[in-house]
C-alpha cells in the first residue's frame, strides 16, 4: 500500500496500460510536452513519444471524434478534455458516435474509448469554467459514466475503463488532483458498475459521489459526535448505470435518504436516486427523501457569491435532524 495523490494514481494507471498494450494512446491539449494541466500524463511523453502521447490542437469535437474513429479499429485512446466545460464542444461525437455505434451497427462496431475530464466548481473560475456535467453524460444510453472520489478509485476505475469495450466517461474534479490516499501497490481493477459503503451507519443514508462523498463524510462526523446519529455514506462512483441494488439495500437498512450533489437539482443525480428509491423501496421509508444541491444558477465569480451556491455541512446536518423530527 502506498499513499499517493489522485493525479499520480491516474498517471500510474495510464503508464501501466500503455506499457502493456501498444494500442493504448493518450491525447489532449497540453498533455504531452507540458505533462498535462493536472499532471495526469506527467512523464509519459518522454517515455512513449509523440505518436502515443499526442498534444492536440484546440479542436475538442475533432480530436474526440478522431479518438472514437481510431477506437473502431482497435486503438484504445484515453482522451483528456482539459475541463468538462470544453466537453460541451465534443458532445456531438461522444453522444452521436461513441455512445450509439455499437447499437446502430447491430453490434458490428464498438468504441472502446475513455474520456477523462475534470468538472466542478473550483476557486472563482466563473460561469464558463465551473460546469458540473455528470448529469448530462449520465442520461445517454450507451455511455458509461464513473466518478472516482479518491486515488484508489481513480486508479482502479481508469484501469477497468481502458480495458472495457464500452465508451467510458470519467468525471474527475478540479479540486481533487492533489488529494492523497492509500492505493494498493499490486495491480487491481474496479467494477465499472456499483457503489461503495464509505461509512457504515444505521440511522440515515447520505448518498454522495465524487467530491460530495467528502461533504457527506464530514456531515456524518458531526451527526455522530454532536447528535448521536449514525449516518451511512454511500459513494455512488458509478453514475451510469446507478447501482439500484446498492441504493435500495442501504435505504432498507436506514429508512431515510439524503442525496448530496454538487450540481443543480433539475434532471440530476438526486432526482434519479429518488426515483430509484421510489421504485425499489418506497414503503421502507420513514421520511421523505431530501436532495441537497447547488442553486440553479450559473456559477458567479465573486467569492462571497460563489460560497453561497453549494450545500454546506450544516445544511446536511439540519436536513438529517429534521428527518429525525429534531429540526
Amino acid at each position: 500500500m502506498s499513499q499517493i495523490m489522485f493525479w499520480e494514481a491516474l498517471r500510474r494507471a495510464q503508464d501501466e496500460e500503455m506499457e502493456r498494450d501498444p494500442m493504448v494512446i493518450c491525447m489532449g491539449e497540453d498533455i504531452g510536452v507540458a505533462g498535462g494541466t493536472y499532471k495526469a500524463t506527467n512523464g509519459l511523453y518522454d517515455k512513449y513519444g509523440p505518436e502515443r502521447v499526442m498534444d492536440t490542437p484546440i479542436s475538442e469535437n475533432g480530436f474526440t471524434g478522431l479518438a472514437i474513429g481510431a477506437s473502431f479499429l482497435g486503438v484504445r485512446p484515453v482522451v483528456e478534455i482539459m475541463s468538462v466545460n470544453f466537453a460541451w464542444l465534443a458532445m456531438d461525437q461522444i453522444f452521436n458516435s461513441a455512445a450509439k455505434v455499437r447499437y446502430m451497427s447491430g453490434g458490428q462496431l464498438e468504441a472502446p474509448v475513455v474520456i477523462r475530464s475534470p468538472g466542478g466548481t473550483a476557486h472563482q473560475l466563473g460561469a464558463q469554467h465551473s460546469a458540473r456535467m455528470e448529469k448530462v453524460f449520465m442520461g445517454i444510453a450507451g455511455l458509461r459514466v464513473v466518478t472516482p472520489s479518491n486515488p484508489r478509485q481513480a486508479y482502479g476505475l481508469l484501469k477497468s475503463a481502458i480495458r472495457c469495450n464500452d465508451p467510458v466517461f470519467i468525471n474527475e474534479h478540479e479540486l481533487m488532483y492533489n488529494m492523497k490516499g492509500d492505493v494498493p501497490d499490486d495491480e487491481y481493477f474496479m467494477s465499472l458498475e456499483g457503489s461503495e459503503v464509505a461509512r457504515d451507519g444505521r440511522d440515515v443514508t447520505l448518498f454522495g459521489y465524487n467530491i460530495s462523498v467528502h461533504w457527506a463524510l464530514a456531515a456524518a462526523e458531526v451527526l455522530s459526535k454532536q447528535h448521536a446519529i449514525e449516518a451511512e455514506v454511500i459513494d455512488l462512483y458509478s453514475l451510469a448505470p446507478l447501482d439500484r441494488a446498492g441504493i435500495a439495500a442501504s435505504v432498507r437498512k436506514t429508512h431515510r435518504a439524503v442525496i448530496i450533489e454538487e450540481a443543480e437539482a433539475p434532471v440530476g443525480v438526486g432526482s434519479e436516486v429518488m426515483a430509484i428509491i421510489n421504485e425499489e423501496c418506497f414503503f421502507e421509508l420513514d421520511a421523505a427523501p431530501v436532495r441537497l444541491s447547488a442553486l440553479n444558477i450559473p456559477i458567479p465569480y465573486a467569492h462571497v457569491l460563489e460560497k453561497a451556491v453549494m450545500p454546506k455541512t450544516d445544511d446536511i446536518v439540519k436536513a438529517v435532524l429534521k428527518m429525525h423530527g429534531r429540526g
Binding site: L125, G126, A127, Q128, Y301, L305
Partner: peptide
C-alpha cells in the same frame, strides 16, 4: 462592470 458575477474572463 459585470457586477462581480463575471470575473477576469468575463
Amino acid at each position: 462592470c459585470s457586477k462581480g458575477r463575471g470575473g477576469s474572463m468575463h
